[in-house]
Design a protein around this nucleic acid. Structure first.
Lengths: 168, 168
DNA sequence: ACCCATTAGTCGGATGTCCTACTATTTATC
DNA sequence: GATAAATAGTAGGACATCCGACTAATGGGT
């Protein structure tokens, strides 16, 4: 164990020092940005999943549920769900399979286009969506760890990044 | 399809409007922050994976490989890898299994502690690590989108967030 | 009307992540 | 010294994500 790094140092700051030591100065910021995103994502997801666990849903399913709950009709085609949430069609199929098994949503045929499957939220689905939102709001989203003023800047910068990437 | 949202709008901005419309003002920032992290993570990961694909490694394996490549001895115990990368032990086992199958690393017994498994990078592993870094630096990390000044602010804020979460 | 490209979903497979055991080994305690 | 507690890794299972391939249905161009 010949680790000369100071204890309790930030692994990402350490990686940046390595990058700069190798002369990759142009890439150091980008490397730090990508790595930071990975870790922060993991932390945030973990906190959210912990809170949602008692309700027996995951964040992926919560997103689907809320999209339906807040939609004007309480139902959306599979494809639209994928577009809004920016996930692959097969991920939507997966999430809806599980939500349907839990009786939180139901697949319905589209009235005019038989290719399309409508996903409709159930009464129980709405209950779970509301309870989940209440808990998430209280225990995660209002936490200063994530709602501090600088975090608004993060949201703005990431919005630009997403837009550049063609996210919307 | 009664969707009155303007076309090409940002789904996250839309979600924030929904939150505020429901009076969840305290949670709107946090919700937007978490959701932004999810999407940005997905975008960044996708770009990285696309670049690494020809080298037949993933970002998870690249991180392990670089950690070893930049270590003083070219080898580290499994547990140390997990601590540095902030991932679960079983994720390290998984990544090392695949790296070993590709002959980029090799498991070695620890000289004094027989519980410990040392992971040692091979010559081929170093080649792949260097080539991957070169490509990532050129095609992803130097992207103005990720190496911009605002993105540096993101890295700083996320560092605080990670620290609050006990990441280091 | 008919054929073919496009669109909507699903299926199977690959990856990565986590969690809960479980084994093997080391270390601390009595 | 023997036993209990802690540590290092692995195995199996659950989830989510993506990709490529496949089925079914729609619709445009001739």
């Amino acid at each position: 164990m010949v680790d000369r790094r100071p204890l309790n140092s930030d692994p990402i700051a350490e990686a940046r020092r390595q990058w700069e030591a190798h002369g990759w100065n142009d890439a150091a910021d980008g490397m730090a940005a990508v790595t930071s995103l990975m870790r922060a994502h993991q932390i945030a997801l973990s906190r959210v999943e912990t809170v949602l666990k008692p309700l027996e849903i995951t964040f992926a399913r919560y997103e689907v549920l809320m999209l339906l709950h807040l939609s004007s009709r309480g139902s959306l085609p599979m494809g639209v769900i994928g577009s809004r949430l920016q996930v692959h069609q097969t991920s939507v199929t997966n999430a809806v399979d599980r939500l349907e098994a839990a009786h939180l949503v139901a697949r319905q045929p589209h009235p005019t286009d038989r290719r399309t499957t409508l996903v409709e939220i159930s009464a129980r689905g709405r209950q779970v969506a509301e309870r989940a939102t209440q808990t998430l709001n209280a225990e995660v989203f209002t936490d200063p760890l994530l709602s501090s003023a600088p975090m608004r800047g993060v949201v703005e910068t990431l919005r630009d990044m997403r837009q550049q990437a063609g996210d919307f």
